[in-house]
Design a protein around this nucleic acid. Sequence first.
DNA 1: GAGGTGACCCAAG
DNA 2: TCTTGGGCCACCT
Length: 101
Amino acid sequence: MVADDFVSAVLGVVESIPPGRVMSYGDVAAALGSRAARAVGQTMAYYGSTVPWWRVVKASGHPATDHEQRALEYYRVEGTPLLWSTSGVFRIDMRSARHTP
DNA sequence: GAGGTGACCCAAG
DNA sequence: TCTTGGGCCACCT
């Protein structure tokens, strides 16, 4: 259950992200005092279903792999600043959308 | 108890 | 600007 400290911490940080803001996996891991950015992704893949996973993106500004289209809908609703490319590809405006605790 | 995998990150070319 | 390679930690079987 929720006896998992790491999982609970990850979910807690993600839920702590206000709407219109996003955090990179590395930032979430750093918030936990760890560098396990991949572990965050692993945990999110299983337990992320209970948290706004779309508010967690890569440090490059791209959403989670194979979920960008799904996250895009949430970003538009929450008013998250997005940067659109000429190819129709979008990415997060980290300079302002990046939530720093 | 040990091995494999992953919604990743950083540095260099 | 984009692509490649290596490394890191935690979770699952």
